[in-house]
């Protein structure tokens, strides 16, 4: 018994202060939201496009579709005019699919997430997670939000065992054909009104598996989507940021 208490003291209080305090420090090598300088782009050059594994780089004008981007950063160092620079900005979540296309150096104001649109769930949001072909990285970094370090429960957000107890789905993976029916059944089991959150480039576009005949290029073609959180995987901070914006806790 005493050793349990001693361990409790030794492990200390570890919950992050965010969003009331600063966000936890990310690695200085973390590749977040890219800054795109379209005017610097040489239309005759296509190095970025050639190296991109998922077709996330758009050209003329230059843009990056975060919904497809794996944030591998392969394009940025190849650009002779440095028109693409990956920043440390973890704020990548968007409500609309179109807004995931980044074509400017700065994040456009007021386009992050339709903050407050889902205020119904501001104080209590119960989610059912469905992995539909996910590789377990998005799943793991969603799961980590439940640990004492992040303590998702303090925002009233919780992952529940049954879709019938849930206010929405958090979906990962490119939606394999073999999970399509189970996903749709789970969606139907969630009572109205409900939200759909896609976590990871797979769930948004198919990610590395885009256009495989075994997958459906994400859930967007199958279900109405309220929030996209791109990344491969998005960091827990990016996921938390998205969830808090969706529920109007931060703007």
């Amino acid at each position: 018994m005493l050793d349990i208490l001693w361990a409790r003291l030794q492990q200390k209080h570890r919950t992050i202060e965010f969003p009331d305090g600063p966000p936890p420090a990310l690695s200085d090598r973390y590749q977040g939201r890219p800054a795109v300088f379209a005017e610097k782009c040489d239309p005759a050059c296509s190095l970025c496009e050639q190296v991109c594994p998922t077709g996330a780089v758009l050209r003329n004008p230059l843009g990056i579709d975060l919904g497809k981007c794996l944030f591998c950063g392969a394009c940025a160092p190849l650009c002779p005019s440095r028109a693409i620079i990956f920043s440390n900005d973890y704020r990548v979540a968007e409500s609309s699919r179109e807004n995931l296309v980044v074509a400017a150096p700065e994040r456009p104001a007021g386009q992050i997430v339709a903050a407050g649109a889902k205020r119904l769930f501001a104080k209590s949001l119960k989610l059912r997670q469905v992995s539909a072909g996910g590789c377990n990285a998005c799943e793991a970094d969603t799961n980590v939000l439940g640990t004492v370090g992040w303590d998702l429960g303090r925002f009233g957000i919780q992952f529940v065992a049954s879709p019938r107890h849930a206010d929405g789905l958090l979906i990962t993976g490119p939606v394999s054909e073999n999970m399509r029916l189970a996903l749709l059944k789970t969606y139907r089991a969630v009572p109205e009104p409900k939200v759909v959150i896609l976590v990871g480039s797979c769930a948004i576009s198919g990610g590395p598996f885009i256009d495989h005949e075994e997958v459906h290029n994400g859930a967007g073609g199958l279900l109405p989507v309220d929030l996209h959180i791109p990344g491969c995987p998005p960091s827990p901070l990016a996921i938390l940021d998205g969830l808090l914006r969706l529920t109007g806790r931060i703007s």
Binding site: A74, G133, G173, S176, N178, M179, A182, F209, H212
Partner: peptide, 23 residues
């Protein structure tokens, strides 16, 4: 099992290409 099948092994044939390391 099989619910997570994404057809990766089939796509690896003919590589390596720019997607292989991400697979």
């Amino acid at each position: 099992l099989g619910y997570q099948h994404r057809g990766v092994e089939r796509k690896l044939a003919g590589g390596p290409d720019r997607r292989t390391i991400h697979y």
